[in-house]
Amino acid sequence: MMQPLFGVYGASGCGRGVMPLARMQLQKLGISADSLVFIDDNPEAVNVNGHPILSYRSFLERKATERYAVLAIANSKVREQLASRCANDGVRPWTIAASNVVTMDDVNLGAGAILSPFVTLTSNIHIGQHFHANLYSYVEHDCVIGDYVTFAPGVKCNGNVVIEDHAYIGAGAVIRQGRPGRPLVIGCGAVIGMGAVVTRDVPPGVTVAGNPAKPLVRG
């Protein structure tokens, strides 16, 4: 009897961290781990941590009632390309959330998110597609987060913040709370360095670091 097929796209570090969460999520639904694989375009092995690695083509060719994939790829531009590829081939986005994720009121979470252990999403939050929130990250009230945004571990995103598409927030970064009607804005494709304390808007495409965070000047 054919079953749905579920894939974690990416068999490297990020994917290996997501796979146990994916497995536990399926177990709670009564779906066999045999339906769960890694997808990798250039596999260097045939099996990782007890799960087979399939090329994308092999994933499409394996018989299944439906196909789902979560994109465990840190690079947001690659993530967007893969999302388009999957959509064109009828592969559905899959959201993975650890069992201890806390989600409060009126949280609108886009398709394909990865929410690692100890992530908290409080209230009145809108998050776009294919969001990655790593260990111990949080999003406070009245935030709007775009598509393909990545939070490294321990990001503290306080209330009334807007983070535009493809922004990357480094490990341990702190984003100061904005004000109602005047949110703090992190622009499209901006990069916030590890441990940075962001106290003002960050323009699109700019990399900032330090406390308070300032644009990096390349010599």
Results as ranks from 00 to 15, higher is better:
Val48Gln: 10
Ile39Lys: 05
Ser12Pro: 00
Ala11Tyr: 07
Ala33Val: 05
Asn47Thr: 13
Ile53Glu: 04
Val46Phe: 10
Glu44Met: 10
Ser55Asn: 06
Glu44Tyr: 05
Ala33Pro: 09
Pro52Phe: 06
Asp41Arg: 02
Gly30Ala: 09
Phe38Arg: 01
Gly30Thr: 04
Phe38Lys: 07
Val48Glu: 02
Val18Pro: 09
Met2Glu: 15
Asn42Asp: 06
Met1His: 14
Arg23Gln: 15
Ser12Arg: 13
Tyr9Asn: 00
Gly7Pro: 08
Ile53Asn: 03
Val37Asp: 00
Met1Asn: 00
Met2Phe: 08
Gly7Gln: 11
Asp41Thr: 04
Gly10Cys: 02
Gln27Asp: 14
Val46Glu: 14
Ile31Trp: 07
Leu54Arg: 05
His51Asp: 07
Val48Phe: 14
Val48Ile: 15
Val18Glu: 08
Asn42Lys: 07
Lys28Leu: 11
Ser35Pro: 05
Leu5Lys: 04
Gly17Cys: 12
Met1Pro: 12
Ser55Tyr: 09
Ser35Asn: 08
Ser32Arg: 03
Gly13Leu: 14
Leu5Asn: 01
Glu44Lys: 12
Met24Ala: 09
Gln3Glu: 15
Ala33Gly: 07
Val8Asp: 06
Arg16Leu: 07
Ala11Asp: 06
Phe6Leu: 10
Leu29His: 07
Glu44Gln: 13
Gly15His: 06
Gln3Tyr: 13
Val46Gly: 12
Arg23Ala: 15
Asp41Ser: 04
Leu21Tyr: 15
Gly50Pro: 11
Gly13Ala: 14
Asn42Ser: 09
Val46Thr: 13
Pro43Val: 00
Val48Tyr: 13
Ala11Gly: 06
Ile53Trp: 03
Asp41His: 10
Met24Asp: 15
Met2Leu: 15
Leu26Val: 03
Glu44Gly: 10
Ser35Gly: 00
Gly30Ser: 09
Ile31Cys: 01
Ser12Glu: 08
Pro4Ala: 10
Gln25Ser: 06
Ala22Met: 13
Ala22Val: 08
Gln25Ile: 06
Cys14Thr: 02
Asp34Glu: 11
Asp40Met: 04
Arg16Met: 14
Phe38Asp: 03
Phe38Trp: 07
Glu44Cys: 00
Asp34Ala: 11
Gly13Cys: 06
Leu36Glu: 03
Gly17Leu: 08
Ala45Gly: 11
Ser32Val: 05
Val8Gly: 01
Ile53Lys: 01
Cys14Trp: 04
Met1Gly: 14
Ser35Asp: 12
Val46Leu: 11
Leu5Gly: 05
Asn42Cys: 07
Lys28His: 12
Gln25Thr: 03
Leu26Ser: 06
Ser32Lys: 04
Phe6Gln: 02
Val37Cys: 09
Val37Tyr: 02
Ser35Ala: 15
Gln25Val: 01
Ala45Met: 13
Tyr9His: 12
Met1Val: 09
Ala22His: 12
Pro20Tyr: 13
Arg23Asp: 09
Val48Arg: 15
Gly7Thr: 05
Asp34Gln: 14
Tyr9Met: 03
Gly13Met: 04
Gly15Gln: 05
Gly13Ser: 14
Pro52Val: 11
Asp40Thr: 00
Ser32Trp: 13
Val18Cys: 13
Ser35Tyr: 06
Ser32Phe: 07
Met24Pro: 00
Val46Asp: 15
Asn42Met: 11
Gly50Gln: 04
Ala45Ile: 02
Gly15Arg: 02
Arg23Ser: 08
Glu44Leu: 12
Leu36Gly: 04
Gly15Met: 02
Met1Tyr: 08
Gly7His: 02
